[in-house]
Simulated assay, not measured.
Amino acid sequence: MTVMTDAAVSVLLGGVLAAGLLCILAAAPRWRAASLTTRIAPYIRDAVEDSVLPSGVLPTVGILPVDASTWWRRARTRMLRGLGDGEALGVRLAQAGLEEEPSAFRARQLGWAIGGTAVGSVLVVVLAVAGSLSPPAAVLPVVCGVGAAITVDMVLTARVRARLARLGDELPTALEFLALCLSAGEGFLDALRRVAMIGSGELSGEMRRVVLDVGTGSPLADALGEMASRLRQPGLARAVDQIVAALEHGAPLAAVLHAQAADAREDAKQALIEQAGRREILMMLPLVFLILPLSVLYAVFPGVFILQLGLG
């Protein structure tokens, strides 16, 4: 065994020992309970001078008692400040349909980064034990940690894109259904409640939230505006603006909803055409870089082979 292998084995065994000791200490009860003087000192300060009390029984001025998770909160707060704007991250979380704060998401991202770093460290130790350790392998912990953090962000981005696409697909049908309910004589809030109860998609869930906000005292226009600002989907924001304007000016809502549904369908058709154009370009890549070179090779190789044999 080489010196590097011995060091890797030592690190591995030491890490396992440290993890075991930490688990034992975390599960063990407190070794020394607070004394009676320490427990009652804060409650007799009005009867006894602070100078008479034993030193250390009163909290230091300006320092509040904190729990054991302060270091984790401090770490995720610093990560939230260092990696980007919390407001933009909050908008992305709302668009993805996740009910969590930006600090909680950064904490989860930090946890995945720590886990990736640990996995990379284990891989380095395994490579060292196997005798295959090379200098580039030393950066595996950093690469795994950064890759895990980036993967979490990419998953959030993909979820936002997919949910916004589903909202855009559901918007024309929901607007047509609202217009149908209004044409049948229902009020807009009742029509909104009916669509929210019957529907099962992403937009129906957002409508249920709007109905809940209105039921708890929020004005209908404010609840709709809050939904549009939270999701920031262009078609939905445009439809909400038109609906709010129609409610304020007394315009016929059914006609407005039909027009917005037609616009949403036109936007969906345009997006489909653009997507088809991008897919057509992507379909050309294997043709240009795979099929065409093989065709040229099949056409040229027999002639080159005959020339090499001297039969031409």
Rank of each mutant, 00 (worst) to 15 (best):
T2R: 08
G14V: 05
L17F: 15
I24V: 15
A26G: 09
A28K: 07
W31D: 07
R32E: 09
A34Q: 13
S35H: 03
L36N: 07
T37F: 06
R39Q: 08
I40M: 08
A41H: 02
A41W: 01
A41M: 00
I44A: 00
R45F: 04
D46R: 15
E49C: 01
S51K: 08
S51D: 10
L53E: 02
S55Q: 14
V57W: 06
G62C: 00
L64H: 13
P65Y: 04
V66S: 13
W71S: 08
R74I: 13
R74A: 14
A75G: 04
G84R: 01
E87D: 11
L89Y: 01
A94M: 03
A96R: 01
E101T: 15
G111D: 14
G111S: 14
G116Q: 09
G116L: 09
T117R: 09
A118P: 02
S121Q: 11
S121P: 09
V122K: 07
L123A: 15
V124Y: 09
G131R: 04
P135I: 03
V139A: 15
P141S: 14
P141W: 12
V142I: 14
V146S: 05
A148N: 06
T151D: 14
A162S: 12
L164Q: 15
A165F: 09
G168Q: 13
D169M: 11
L175A: 01
L180S: 13
F188N: 04
D190N: 10
A191V: 00
A191E: 02
A191P: 00
V195M: 10
A196M: 01
A196E: 03
I198Y: 10
E202D: 10
L203H: 05
R209F: 06
V210Y: 04
V210T: 08
V210A: 05
T216C: 12
S218A: 13
L220K: 07
A223V: 00
L224E: 03
A228V: 00
A228H: 00
R230Y: 05
Q233M: 06
D241V: 06
E248G: 12
G250T: 02
A251L: 12
L253F: 00
A255D: 15
A261P: 00
A262T: 04
D263K: 09
A264Q: 03
E266W: 10
D267W: 13
D267S: 15
I273C: 05
R278N: 10
E280D: 09
E280N: 12
I281W: 12
M284A: 06
P286G: 00
V288Q: 06
P293V: 02
L294Y: 02
L294R: 01
V296N: 05
L297P: 03
L297D: 02
F301H: 01
L309C: 09
G312R: 10
